[in-house]
């Protein structure tokens, strides 16, 4: 699976209140949530992000509440993949469950800058900066999580399991 787009760069400990403030949680449609993604932190984000763009962050991305509205908003806004040094636990599950891939890469988290065009190869676990061809490697996505992404998320994965009678 490949993703290619511009980098949106964020710092450490980006919590789910910053990703989608609670005042916008009175709805659950992804498109409505996307309009308010990073509303307080990056008011320009929702209007400027393009489909296929890549979000790059530091440590502990997605910490805080369990609101699935956070990865739903990011995905519906157009982000194809999130690269971070580390992810908070619930956000990590939620993102894979809804089919938004995450990859952990300390070197990409440090090396990539705002606005740079890059290409991510999820299965190979590599990130390429288009301008100078610089390559960054990521921790491979665990097989189990890759399986969920291949199925299209936890729902189709579960339907397959139920059909298989397990």
């Amino acid at each position: 699976m490949l993703a290619e787009g511009r980098i949106w760069k964020f710092g450490d400990d980006i919590d789910t209140d910053l990703i989608i403030p609670a005042r916008f949680l009175n709805v659950s449609e992804a498109s409505a949530l996307a309009r308010n993604c990073f509303a307080d932190l990056r008011p320009d984000f929702a209007a400027s992000v393009r489909s296929g763009d890549i979000l790059v962050a530091g440590n502990n991305f997605g910490c805080g509440s369990s609101r699935e509205h956070a990865p739903l908003a990011i995905k519906a806004a157009g982000i194809a993949v999130i690269i971070a040094r580390s992810f908070a636990r619930i956000f990590y599950r939620n993102a894979f469950n809804i089919g938004l891939p995450l990859i952990e890469s300390a070197e990409a988290s440090e090396g990539l800058a705002e606005g740079e065009k890059s290409r991510v190869d999820l299965s190979a676990g590599t990130i390429l900066r288009i301008s100078d061809g610089a390559r960054f490697t990521a921790k491979p996505v665990p097989d189990f999580m890759a399986g969920i992404i291949r199925a299209g998320g936890l729902v189709p994965y579960t339907i397959e399991r139920i059909k298989a009678g397990s």
């Binding site: 939620n94 936890l154 579960t158």
Partner: peptide, 17 residues
Amino acid sequence: GVGSTDLGVIMATGEIW
């Protein structure tokens, strides 16, 4: 704690990974 998709799957199956 988990997200809503995990919870929806649990309501259907009674299980979680």
